[in-house]
């Protein structure tokens, strides 16, 4: 599904290397988690994969289902099946949440040569999915993320993910700023999308989220590289001992 080889990334505007050779292979239907201390490059990797400007790829490759991701525009990556749930979902005053969702869904369908959803088809689908995530009609009507609480913003991300049905989902610290109940709700939303084919990359600081979204593989990232990979136990180890031991071990 997602294959990253020796990915090296720096900032466009200053001479600073952030990713220093990341290797990562996520197979169909797999759930991988990336943990790591602040500043290790986790969020940068998610942005680079989604196509945010301001970064410079200096080496390596990233492919989604064999197609070169790094060569595509952000909207093409989305249409190809990539989805990034933002750590900080952006507020867009003046753009209605529903209008935004429908535009996005139909733009992707159009890009994939699929028929666009009619207003009523769309409405029916969005209502069902919103209900599962406890998103009420008022939230759908409001401008995108404007006036949403932290939890509402994250649920809105998952709603978008459900509506766009991507094949590769990256969740960038989706648990940040969530209380236990909100985290459960978000995790349930994610789990509902696990169908054995769709793959996930869950970026998190805490093991707690991984109690709810059970990963197949856990990676530890530090200083722009993945320094250790293992099973779910690795996350527990981090939770109990912090990163110090692992960092010392590989040093």
């Amino acid at each position: 599904m997602l294959n990253i080889k020796n990915l090296q990334v720096g900032l466009e505007e200053e001479d600073k290397q952030i990713l220093k050779g990341v290797d990562l292979n996520i197979g169909e239907g797999e759930v991988h988690a990336i943990m790591g201390p602040n500043g290790s490059g986790k969020s940068t990797m998610s942005y680079v994969l989604a196509g945010k400007s301001g970064y410079k790829v200096t080496g390596g490759s990233a492919t989604l289902n064999g197609v070169d991701l790094l060569d595509m525009e952000p909207e093409e990556r989305a249409a190809a099946g990539l989805f990034l749930a933002f750590q900080y979902p952006v507020e867009i005053p003046g753009v209605g949440n529903m209008t935004f969702l429908r535009t996005a869904v139909n733009a992707q369908r159009k890009a994939r040569n699929e028929p666009e959803l009619t207003a009523s088809e769309f409405l029916k689908e969005v209502r069902t999915k919103a209900k599962d995530l406890k998103i009420d009609a008022d939230m759908l009507k409001r401008p995108v993320n404007v006036g949403f609480s932290g939890g509402e913003k994250k649920r809105n991300e998952i709603l978008q993910m459900a509506m766009l049905s991507p094949t590769m989902c990256i969740l960038d610290e989706t648990d940040s700023g969530l209380d236990v109940d909100a985290m459960k709700l978000v995790a349930e939303g994610v789990n509902a999308l696990r169908d054995g084919k769709r793959s996930f990359l869950v970026i998190t600081h805490y093991q707690r989220l991984l109690d709810h979204i059970k990963p197949d593989v856990v990676h530890i990232m530090a200083n722009g590289k993945i320094i250790k990979s293992g099973g779910p136990d690795l996350a527990l180890e981090v939770e109990n001992n912090g990163y110090a031991d692992i960092l010392a071990e590989v040093a």
Binding site: P74, A78, G94, V95
Partner: peptide
């Protein structure tokens, strides 16, 4: 805001117009 729209698959020109209209 533009990147957010693009990342959801809205093409560049259309995303820009959505923000202008907003």
């Amino acid at each position: 805001a533009l990147f957010y729209l693009l990342s959801r698959g809205v093409p560049q020109a259309q995303a820009q117009d959505m923000l202008i209209l907003a």
